[in-house]
C-alpha cells in the first residue's frame, strides 16, 4: 500500500512536470537556422549531382558518424577499447583459460539448448546484416557488433564458458579478432592518405570520397554495389572489434576468480 502511494506520487509529479514542459515548450521555439543544418545534411548525404560534396550514403546518421565527424568517432572507439584493455589488465592474473578436454555437460535443459542452437546463428546473421548494411539502413558497426555479441553471451548462459572454450572461442583469439578490427579501422582512416602518397597527390587523413583539392578517394561503388567509400569498411571492422570486445569482457568476467 505504501509503495502504491509512493508510485502514485512519483507518477503525478512526473505528469505535472510534463504538463509544465508542454506549456513551456510553446515559448521555446528553436531558431530557423537549425532547420538549415538538418537540410544541409539531408541534401549532401546522398546526392550524385554534387559529386565533390557528397558521402553517397542514403543513411545520414552513419554518414555523419563516420564521415562528417569521423575523427570524433575514432576517438570514441579508442575510449571503448581503452576501457576494455583496463578491464583485461585488472583481471590478468585472475583467470586461466586452458580447456582441460573434459566432456562438457550440464547447463540448462535440452529444449533450451536446442532453441539456442537454432537462434544463435540467426542472431549473428541479423547482427551482420545490421553492420554490413550500415550505410544503407539504420544501424552500423557498433549496433551490429553489439547484436552479434549477444550470441556468445546466450551460449555462456545456456551451456557454459567451457563449452565456448571447447569450440575455440577463447579470449586470446577474440583479442586477435579485435586487433584486426582496430587495425582495419586505423588503416581505413588513412587509406586515402596512403593512396595519395603512392600516386603523389594531395589527400586528407580520414578522406572518404574525392573532395575539391584532393582528388584521391575511395570509390563510392564497387561494380554496381554501393559501399559509400570508407563507410562500409569502417562499419565492417567496427563490427568485428565490438563483437570480439564484448565476448572478451564476458569470458574474462566469468572466468576471473580469486585464487587461494
Amino acid at each position: 500500500m505504501k509503495r502504491a502511494i509512493e508510485l502514485l506520487v512519483i507518477i503525478s509529479l512526473i505528469l505535472g512536470v510534463s504538463l509544465l514542459l508542454t506549456f513551456a515548450s510553446e515559448l521555446l521555439v528553436p531558431s530557423k537556422d537549425i532547420r538549415l543544418l538538418a537540410l544541409f545534411y539531408l541534401f549532401t548525404a546522398f546526392n550524385p549531382r554534387i559529386e565533390y560534396y557528397t558521402v553517397s550514403s542514403p543513411e545520414v546518421v552513419t554518414a555523419i558518424v563516420w564521415d562528417y565527424r569521423g575523427l570524433d568517432t575514432l576517438f570514441e572507439t579508442s575510449v571503448f577499447y581503452l576501457a576494455l584493455i583496463a578491464g583485461l589488465a585488472l583481471a590478468r592474473k585472475l583467470y586461466t583459460e586452458t580447456y582441460s578436454g573434459e566432456v562438457v555437460s550440464g547447463g540448462l535443459s535440452t529444449i533450451v539448448k536446442t532453441v539456442t542452437r537454432i537462434t544463435a546463428p540467426m542472431i549473428i546473421v541479423v547482427g551482420a546484416s545490421i553492420g554490413l548494411h550500415g550505410h544503407l539502413t539504420p544501424g552500423g558497426g557498433f549496433q551490429g557488433g553489439a547484436t552479434i555479441a549477444v550470441a556468445p553471451m546466450i551460449f555462456i548462459v545456456v551451456y557454459s564458458t567451457m563449452f565456448l572454450l571447447s569450440k575455440g572461442v577463447s579470449s586470446s583469439r577474440m583479442l586477435l579478432l579485435r586487433s584486426i578490427g582496430l587495425l582495419g579501422i586505423g588503416f581505413t582512416g588513412i587509406a586515402g592518405f596512403l593512396i595519395g602518397l603512392a600516386v603523389n597527390k594531395y589527400a586528407y587523413v580520414f578522406q572518404n570520397l574525392p573532395k575539391p583539392g584532393a582528388e584521391i578517394g575511395l570509390p563510392a561503388y564497387i561494380g554496381n554495389v554501393l559501399i559509400s567509400g570508407t563507410l562500409w569498411f569502417f562499419n565492417f571492422f567496427e563490427m568485428l572489434a565490438v563483437a570480439a570486445g564484448f565476448t572478451i569482457a564476458f569470458t574474462v568476467l566469468l572466468l576471473a576468480r580469486r585464487e587461494g
Partner: peptide, 17 residues
C-alpha cells in the same frame, strides 16, 4: 539507430554482465 544500439546493449549485454 538508437533503437538498434539500445536493444542489444540494454536488454542483452548489460543484464548479462
Amino acid at each position: 539507430d538508437i533503437v538498434l544500439v539500445y536493444l542489444p546493449v540494454a536488454v542483452g549485454l548489460i543484464p548479462g554482465v
